[in-house]
Amino acid sequence: MVKSFLRQSPLAHLHLEARPLMAEALPAAGISISECAHTTQIAVRGQSSDPAFAQAVTTALGIALPTDACTASGAPERVHMLWMGPDEWLVVGPAKTDDRIGDKLEQALNKLHCAVVDVSESRTVVQICGANARSVLDKGCSIDLHPTVFSPGRVVNTVLARSHITLHQTAIDAKSGFPSYDIYVHRSFAEYLWSWLEDASREYGLQMNP
């Protein structure tokens, strides 16, 4: 097997791991961003109206198929599933897990009309949180992210700046009320989007996490 260090995430060349050392006045930062590279991402297509399909997915993954539009199921730090469309979902597994999500799904679904496509390489995930995370997203995204409308577990496919993204609110800090989001961006757009986020975040103070 090839050495793992040869595997390059779309933002690896920016050496984000070295950036926090250069940043100053971190406590004031209103925005914190990082790349969550090499997650497992499996596109699943099928008919949610078919009970066998929903059942098979649940059996394979241990989480329910999110059939309500723009929702997620499962815990964001473990295997979870994002609604992408009425017949389309994205199964996401944390990086460095080796539980063969794709194989499990293929086995569970192989008798049904559906599609299971490994798209782990297609997108990377940029995580953003902090006091001003919502404001930064508002600068480039037309979705209403107000807490009364958009809360943890909400997922939208939309546009941020000039790039298509999938936006998943993963959490809200119980104490501060600050939200956390996962931004899925196609790898060819990753550097553009990262640059945009850095630029848009500047006025709030930006902390980059490895």
């Binding site: 390059q8 779309p10 060349h13 600068k139 480039g140 700046a161 000039r162 790039s163 790898r187 060819s188 757009f189 990753a190 550097e191 553009y192 989007l193 640059s195 945009w196 630029d199 848009a200």
Partner: peptide
């Protein structure tokens, strides 16, 4: 707005871009 300079339009990069 922010769509000026290097951010005028996304530059899409292949894995071998750099």
């Amino acid at each position: 707005g922010r769509n000026v300079g290097v951010l005028t339009d996304p530059v899409r990069m292949t894995p071998m871009h750099h």
